[in-house]
């Protein structure tokens, strides 16, 4: 059964599965440790006592490397793999993770599970145009004002639902490992409960790419003391799992996304819609404007009514409004000698053959009005009767009426018999 249609075949809203769209994808990272190999140290605490275990990060050695692939590989709690940055990349320097989702997604959350202490400051951005431009999604910092010039936990109102918030929650240095940062895109947004009817929030959660910028490391404050090198080798960013939870964006017109011929991820559009996000109507289905599907209404696109006489049509808003928002399609290039918005009558010089339905290829016959006996070339749409000159008769005006005879004048072809 197709989730986009009910058991009676009627269209209904359908949405792709909820997935971790980051899983298995490549993440572009600005500064990963191991090239060249370098020492790093892990601090553990037992009560007041801190111990430091040092290791080597070596990109050339699979056992000692911490590549970006570990961000989105299978997250096995019993065997954590951690991506790790170079040591002591401290503000104003930062480390950037960039993830391309491959198409528009409606993001529900972005989460990061850390192997190191969580950053003191970090920012999450999104792009809606495949990385051309970036919009802030969320900031985390113990010093929101100083780091991002934003108020801590600013209120979100109906007027600024697309505002990125800065919060100091989740910015503790502890736990030293295993800390989680999870950003929920709709948290605290006033219209979240009515997402279906909120184009602003639908736009807000839409992303093609996610970028995470680690802006400031937490430290114990020993990075400038004696033996600062050892201390600095203990400060780095390390993440075991980057997740971007959400759904492939298909505007309610598809239940899954598939790879197209070029390998791009696209929606498997139903309801006569088209485009990577099912965000327009497919050709010839312009009888009403495209709309996103809602829980109540599938808003499928409807084919134009052209009685099989046209392959193309266009939408006309005025007609649509005049019809009470029922039908606005206008057929283009009516064939088979038909005409009208729906190719539903015969064009000038032709008349209906009532023995055939209007959708028949030969539903319109030529009038065939006599070049001299008829006063014009256009005949009656339903009878085929041509307009005859005085004294002339016949459906095509090709003979003189009773009491008349043919003359030599093409202007008055039939004259009364004296």
């Amino acid at each position: 059964p197709d989730p986009c249609y009910d058991e009676n075949g009627n269209p209904r809203r359908c949405i792709p599965d909820f997935v971790n769209s980051a899983f298995g994808k490549d993440v572009r990272v600005s500064r990963t440790c191991g090239s060249p190999a370098a020492r790093y140290c892990v601090v553990t605490e037992k009560g007041e006592e801190r111990t430091r275990d040092c290791h080597s990060c070596d990109a050339g050695d699979p056992k000692k490397s911490h590549p970006p692939a570990y961000l989105t590989d299978l997250n096995n709690p019993h065997n954590l793999t951690c991506w790790q940055s170079e040591n002591y990349v401290q503000a104003p320097q930062n480390v950037t993770l960039t993830l391309s989702l491959g198409k528009k997604f409606e993001v529900t959350y972005v989460s990061l599970q850390f192997c190191s202490p969580r950053p003191e400051s970090m920012a999450i951005y999104k792009s809606m145009d495949y990385g051309k431009s970036w919009v802030p999604f969320q900031f985390y910092s113990t010093q929101c004002k100083k780091m991002y010039n934003r108020q801590n936990k600013a209120a979100i109102t109906k007027q600024n639902e697309q505002e990125a918030i800065c919060t100091d929650s989740h910015t503790d240095m502890h736990p030293l490992t295993g800390g989680l940062i999870a950003f929920s895109t709709l948290d605290g947004r006033p219209s979240a409960h009515d997402f279906d009817n909120s184009p602003v929030l639908q736009d807000w959660v839409t992303a093609t790419d996610i970028k995470v910028i680690f802006s400031r490391l937490h430290t114990f404050g020993d990075e400038n003391e004696d033996d600062s090198e050892l201390a600095r080798d203990s400060y780095f960013y390390a993440v075991s799992d980057l997740q971007v939870g959400g759904r492939c964006k298909c505007n309610g017109h598809a239940s899954k996304c598939v790879k197209d011929r070029e390998g791009n991820l696209v929606c498997e559009c139903k309801h006569n819609t088209a485009g990577p996000e099912c965000d327009r109507c497919k050709p010839f289905h312009y009888d009403r404007p495209w709309q996103r599907a809602t829980a109540r209404e599938a808003n499928e696109c409807v084919a134009c009514h052209c009685n099989l006489h046209a392959r193309r049509c266009r939408f006309n808003m005025e007609l649509y409004k005049l019809s009470g928002r029922k039908s606005g399609g206008v057929c283009m290039n009516c064939r088979h000698n038909t005409a009208g918005r729906h190719c539903h009558y015969c064009k000038e010089g032709f008349y209906r053959d009532m023995a055939r339905p209007i959708s028949h290829r030969r539903a319109c016959k030529a009038c065939d009005c006599h070049p001299v006996g008829a006063a014009g070339k256009t005949c009656n749409q339903t009878t085929g009767q041509c307009p005859c000159k005085d004294g002339v008769t016949g459906i095509t005006c090709n003979r003189c009426a009773k009491g008349y005879q043919q003359s030599r004048s093409p202007v008055a072809p039939c004259i009364k018999i004296p």
Binding site: H370, P371, V372, T393, N398, R399, R408, S409, C414
Partner: peptide, 24 residues
Amino acid sequence: EVMPTLDMALFDWTDYEDMKPVDT
């Protein structure tokens, strides 16, 4: 009674050249 159809050959097109059908 069958009515004879208009005979195009009988018409005098002098002064009405512009009205004359192409194929006449």
